[in-house]
Amino acid sequence: MEWNAIIEFINPELLIVVAACWIIGYVLKQTPRIPDWTIIYAVTVVAVAFAIVMLGFTPQSVLQGILCGAVAVYGNQLVKQAKKSGDE
């Protein structure tokens, strides 16, 4: 899948939210008391909150937040899997 196609769905002013969510996910992953399965939910909640603050409370801002969180997690997994396949 091409990143350009994915990025077209996200409001350009929210790309900083994607970067912030990526960092938040990384920090949560390094935290021993946080189970891995909760990271996706935490990142999504933070992304939706950021999107609502930046765009106002609308259904579109909630959807944009979900997309930002999803792209951050997907991008992280894509990088991890690419590194893992290179090690084999």
Rank of each mutant, 00 (worst) to 15 (best):
E88S: 12
W3R: 12
A82P: 05
A5F: 01
A20Q: 09
I24H: 03
C21T: 10
I39M: 11
W3P: 06
G69W: 00
R33E: 05
V17W: 01
V73D: 07
Q60A: 11
Q64R: 01
G25D: 01
Q30K: 06
S61E: 11
P12Y: 10
G69K: 04
L78D: 12
K84R: 15
Q60F: 10
L28P: 07
G65L: 05
F57P: 01
A82C: 08
I7S: 12
K84V: 07
I10N: 11
N11W: 10
T58W: 05
T31Y: 06
G86Q: 08
V43I: 12
V53Q: 13
V79D: 08
L67Q: 04
P59D: 03
P12M: 06
P59G: 06
A5K: 08
L67I: 03
E13S: 15
A51K: 06
Y74C: 02
A5R: 05
V18Q: 04
L55H: 04
L14N: 10
M54E: 00
I24W: 02
A20S: 09
I40N: 13
K80I: 05
E2P: 15
I16H: 00
K80L: 09
A70Y: 07
L15H: 14
T58R: 03
I7L: 14
R33G: 03
V17L: 02
G25E: 01
S85A: 14
G75Y: 08
V27Y: 00
T44V: 02
M54N: 01
V46M: 03
I34F: 01
W3C: 07
L78C: 06
